[in-house]
Simulated scan of single mutants.
Amino acid sequence: MTLRLATQQDAAAIADLGRRAFIAKFGHLYSAANLAMFLDDAHSPAKVLKELADPAMKVAVMEDDGRIASFCKIVKSSGLPAHTPALRPMELKQLYTDPDQIGRGHGARLMDWALAEARRWGADEMQLSVYADNPDAQRFYRRYGMDKVADITFTVGDHVDPEFLFAGAL
């Protein structure tokens, strides 16, 4: 497995993986129309290209035999609602793994990378949003010192999900 920064040539593969991972974990929660609209907006090659060009965002990928198996997107300044006294919070936007590759250590390596980048940026806190009914993800982030600081929401079309804002000091 190789961890590296994503390039523009990775956009289609990242978008595809984002779509597949989201559908596998959360697709059953939404109507077909809401899901399609969300995926077209959040996990399109055009959206990934825009993110890769953003100097305030970094995207890392894990490759397995030349194929992108996981990715992580981080943003220098958190766009999540302010619920902590952090002065320089950064945001972990997405950490997705191919559903067939879960449990192989990709998430841990990407999380270590994200924390190291956040510290290089001078961030004083990492923040992320996690689905309220996703105890596996919550357990994973707690291993890295993150915990729930607020109840928030996540909207997919006209469907509103309960989410938790997780945060951890750096």
Score class of each variant (00 low, 15 high):
52 L>S: 05
124 D>H: 05
59 V>M: 13
100 D>K: 09
114 A>L: 06
111 M>L: 06
71 F>G: 02
105 G>Y: 05
64 D>V: 15
112 D>R: 12
59 V>T: 15
104 R>D: 03
121 W>E: 13
98 D>F: 06
76 K>F: 04
122 G>Y: 06
94 Q>H: 08
72 C>K: 00
106 H>V: 04
70 S>W: 08
49 L>T: 08
116 A>P: 00
94 Q>Y: 07
103 G>S: 10
60 A>S: 13
69 A>G: 12
77 S>K: 14
85 P>T: 13
64 D>T: 14
100 D>Q: 15
60 A>D: 09
86 A>N: 08
95 L>N: 10
120 R>Q: 12
72 C>Q: 01
79 G>Q: 14
111 M>K: 02
117 E>M: 06
98 D>L: 05
96 Y>T: 09
60 A>V: 07
73 K>W: 00
63 E>R: 03
132 A>I: 00
71 F>M: 10
132 A>W: 07
74 I>D: 03
85 P>C: 09
135 P>C: 08
65 D>K: 12
125 E>W: 00
129 S>L: 03
134 N>S: 10
66 G>K: 11
104 R>I: 01
92 L>P: 02
108 A>Q: 13
119 R>D: 04
88 R>V: 11
76 K>H: 12
101 Q>I: 02
53 A>W: 02
106 H>I: 02
68 I>D: 02
90 M>I: 06
126 M>C: 14
83 H>N: 12
51 E>L: 06
76 K>D: 11
69 A>K: 04
127 Q>W: 05
56 A>H: 10
135 P>I: 03
67 R>C: 12
122 G>W: 02
56 A>M: 10
91 E>D: 08
103 G>C: 10
71 F>P: 01
127 Q>L: 08
112 D>Q: 14
104 R>Q: 15
91 E>K: 09
104 R>C: 11
75 V>P: 00
84 T>H: 03
50 K>Y: 01
127 Q>R: 14
52 L>F: 04
132 A>E: 13
49 L>F: 01
74 I>E: 03
131 Y>V: 09
92 L>D: 04
48 V>M: 14
72 C>P: 02
97 T>E: 10
92 L>K: 05
99 P>H: 10
78 S>D: 07
122 G>Q: 06
135 P>F: 03
77 S>W: 01
102 I>T: 14
88 R>D: 14
114 A>M: 05
131 Y>T: 00
75 V>C: 10
